[in-house]
């Protein structure tokens, strides 16, 4: 079977790419995609370690919870992005820099 370290290596690479995407993109939707990449790296870790927990299923259950939480996060974040677009006519996080009044 595949070693644990191979999974962790892929997940480390995915996490760092997600970090880079969050830091460089000038578009809120792409920043959100970066966050999703980092979340998926964490889920991959949970699943890889979950192989050694057959009886209580800790890793796989919390991977499920993390996926559902990510979906809820995305729904709220996209609603916020749409509102920000209505107000500022841009979704560049660097340009939305003042409060309501």
């Amino acid at each position: 079977m595949i070693n644990l370290s191979d999974f962790l290596l892929v997940s480390a690479g995915l996490f760092c790419i997600g970090l880079y995407v969050i830091l460089t993109k000038r578009n809120s939707i792409q920043v959100l995609i970066g966050i999703e990449l980092m979340l998926n790296a964490a889920i991959l870790n949970l699943v890889a370690f979950g192989k050694y927990d057959k009886i209580s299923n800790g890793g796989q259950t919390f991977a499920l919870f993390a996926i559902v939480l990510a979906a809820a996060t995305t729904a709220v974040a996209l609603a916020i992005i749409l509102n920000v677009y209505k107000k500022y006519k841009t979704i560049d996080p660097g340009k939305t820099d003042h409060l309501k009044d």
Binding site: I2, Q60, L64
Partner: peptide, 28 residues
């Protein structure tokens, strides 16, 4: 995830992410 022996997680990933999150993103 399937190769990590978590087939149910893999199906959930496809249903929730690909079916839900991506469609939301395209909408936005």
């Amino acid at each position: 995830y399937v190769l990590a022996l978590a087939d149910f997680i893999a199906i959930t990933q496809i249903v929730v992410y690909v079916g839900g999150v991506l469609v939301l993103m395209i909408f936005a």
